[in-house]
């Protein structure tokens, strides 16, 4: 069935004999163009700003976390100590005070402090420390690391991830970060 029914075509075939002139037809063409242009403009009023709006906050640089104080230097030695890291967490509009962000192992290596994320580089399980063997072990797929974080076995593609650590006036602070799992190079997420 064609679209031109007895009431006339939607493209504006004349209803009135007088309107059949070519001038009238071209005038109507102009009006249609006007409707199209203005209509698109109207749609753009909410649509154009909506794009960036809906994508927010993607693509925005995340602020790097601050150094979080974890206490006195004296509590750390060559035996790794597990430390929880607390900080305020902002989730869109709300701020939660003093939330546990994650944990790390802090150990003295050659007189210097090192902090390892407890997240296994393989798939993110929390690695434990075996004091008897002086090794870090992951309970999930048996990755093992030396006390300095080097892979000694298992599927972990890279050594334990070190976290930035800062010492000042006998106090220690650590910057918490998460890294991509399962890749050979340490990449922050």
């Amino acid at each position: 069935m064609s679209s031109s029914d007895d009431r006339g075509a939607p493209d504006g075939a004349a209803h009135d004999p007088e309107d059949r002139s070519p001038e009238a037809a071209s005038r109507r063409g102009l009006l249609k163009l006007g409707v199209g242009v203005l209509g698109c403009g109207l749609a753009a009023i909410p649509a154009a700003p909506a794009v960036g709006y809906l994508l927010y906050p993607l693509g925005r640089e995340r602020a790097v976390g601050a150094f979080l104080p974890v206490g006195a230097r004296t509590q750390f030695s060559a035996t790794p100590v597990r430390i929880d890291l607390h900080a305020d967490r902002v989730d869109a509009w709300s701020r939660e005070r003093d939330v546990k962000l994650g944990s790390c192992w802090v150990v003295e290596v050659d007189g210097k402090l090192q902090a390892f994320s407890t997240a296994c580089p393989h798939l993110g399980c929390a690695v434990d420390y075996e004091p008897g063997e002086a090794k870090f072990k992951c309970p999930c797929h048996r990755s093992a690391f030396t006390a300095t974080g080097v892979v000694e076995g298992g599927p972990s593609p890279r050594p334990l991830d070190t976290l930035e650590i800062e010492e000042k006036d006998g106090l220690v602070a650590i910057r918490f970060q998460r890294f991509r799992q399962g890749v050979p190079h340490k990449e922050p997420v």
């Binding site: 939607p10 504006g12 209803h15 009135d16 009006l31 249609k32 409707v35 203005l38 209509g39 109207l42």
Partner: peptide, 27 residues
Amino acid sequence: KRKAQPFWPNQLFLDVLAMALCGAALV
């Protein structure tokens, strides 16, 4: 009857024009 015009595009154009003015004023 003699003065009758089709809604599309004659009246619709006026309508959309008014909408556009209104939209512009809002912006």
